[in-house]
Amino acid sequence: MRHDKATRLLDLARMLAGSSEGLTLDEMARAMGVGRRTAERMRDAVWAAFPQMEAIEDPPTKRFRIPSGLDSLFQTPTAEELAALRTAADSYAAGGAEGRAAALYALERKLLSALRGAARRKVAPDVEALVQAETIAVHPGPRPFESEQVLSAIRTAVKGLQALSFRYEGGSAPGRTRKVTPLGILFGHSNYLVATEGRDPRPRTFRLDRMQAVAALDEPAPPPADFSLQAFADESFGIYHGQIEDVVLRIGPSRAEDALRWRFHPNQVVTQDPDGSVTVAFRASGMLELSWHLFTWGDAVEIVSPPGLREMMVEELKTALKAHEG
């Protein structure tokens, strides 16, 4: 128990050392999964162990941080952490995300090079053993396009609040040069830039593999203050955005356990029905992508609403049947 308590205090110290703005007591409580009174006692214990911790006035509350960071003695990564980093990098590489894979491999090299000789010799065999015992199941599907040059240009524009220019080989006017305000990147089976163009305030998506001659411009282009990339992504079942619909699906008893473990949408509401079936409700756009996904559930799923999704599903089934029944 004492060891567990010390570990949790060290985790909190790392959070306080890793935050430039500091954490409030309420934020500490949420991060550690404890009540406010317990968070106060943990803060005091960390402060006693690390007297360099400071309090910053942020009315109506205070923030706390350890501005000088922690000594490397407290920062040695475990074999499990290094193996998880390698597995994540290998997963990116196997899925074609070469840019993000390269970044994680570089981070792994930096972490290992920062370890003292004895610590590195101790952890290296365990890391290799875990990596050999864990592998990545590569699922079929499109390999995402990740050009380091394209990603670097987009990130430069995002960090500098600058406009972005590129020639787009998609859309209604292929080959036209676009000038946009970049809002972020959505990574998935295909990778997309989210941006606004011209005076239209609605965010749009641009496939990265169709963007050429990408460059950050010396022109200010700050994003809307109220824009959230996560909220934008949560509006749609997949990537494509359209009219937001109220979706209700009923999954039969034969697949009820699968449905209870499945996430159709971040904001879904799941209820178990008396007959053993499961009802899933959420609001989203991207009905075509949703209908494609529902193919995988076979006859176990019933589309309760919206009617347009049910009709779209029927048309997609007719098209597939026509192509294969002969």
Score class of each variant (00 low, 15 high):
Ala173Pro: 01
Gly175Asn: 07
Gly175Met: 05
Gly175Lys: 05
Arg176Val: 14
Thr177Glu: 14
Thr177Asn: 05
Thr177Ile: 12
Arg178Gln: 14
Arg178Pro: 04
Arg178Glu: 09
Lys179Thr: 15
Lys179Gly: 00
Thr181His: 03
Thr181Phe: 02
Thr181Val: 14
Pro182Met: 09
Pro182Ala: 07
Leu183Val: 00
Leu183Trp: 12
Gly184Arg: 08
Ile185Thr: 13
Ile185Arg: 02
Phe187Leu: 15
Phe187Lys: 00
Gly188Tyr: 12
Gly188Ala: 13
Gly188Asn: 10
His189Cys: 09
Ser190Trp: 10
Ser190His: 14
Asn191Val: 14
Asn191Gly: 08
Tyr192Gln: 10
Thr196Gln: 15
Glu197Ile: 07
Arg199Trp: 08
Asp200Ile: 04
Asp200Lys: 07
Pro201Asn: 07
Pro201Ser: 05
Arg202Ala: 13
Pro203Cys: 06
Pro203His: 08
Arg204Met: 13
Arg204Ala: 12
Phe206Val: 00
Leu208Met: 13
Leu208Trp: 07
Leu208Thr: 06
Asp209Val: 02
Asp209Leu: 02
Gln212Glu: 11
Gln212Gly: 00
Ala213Val: 01
Ala213Asp: 14
Val214Thr: 13
Val214Leu: 10
Ala215Tyr: 01
Ala215His: 04
Ala215Ile: 01
Ala215Cys: 01
Ala215Ser: 07
Ala215Trp: 02
Ala216Asn: 04
Leu217Tyr: 05
Pro220Ala: 08
Pro220Arg: 10
Ala221Val: 02
Pro222Lys: 04
Pro222Glu: 00
Pro223Ile: 00
Pro224Trp: 11
Pro224His: 09
Pro224Tyr: 11
Pro224Ile: 06
Ala225Ile: 11
Ala225Tyr: 09
Asp226Val: 01
Asp226Leu: 03
Asp226Trp: 04
Ser228Pro: 10
Ser228Cys: 12
Leu229Tyr: 11
Leu229Lys: 10
Gln230Ala: 14
Ala231Cys: 01
Ala231Gly: 11
Ala233Ile: 00
Ala233Met: 06
Asp234Asn: 15
Asp234Trp: 12
Glu235Cys: 01
Ser236Pro: 10
Gly238Met: 08
Ile239Asn: 04
His241Val: 08
His241Met: 09
His241Gln: 14
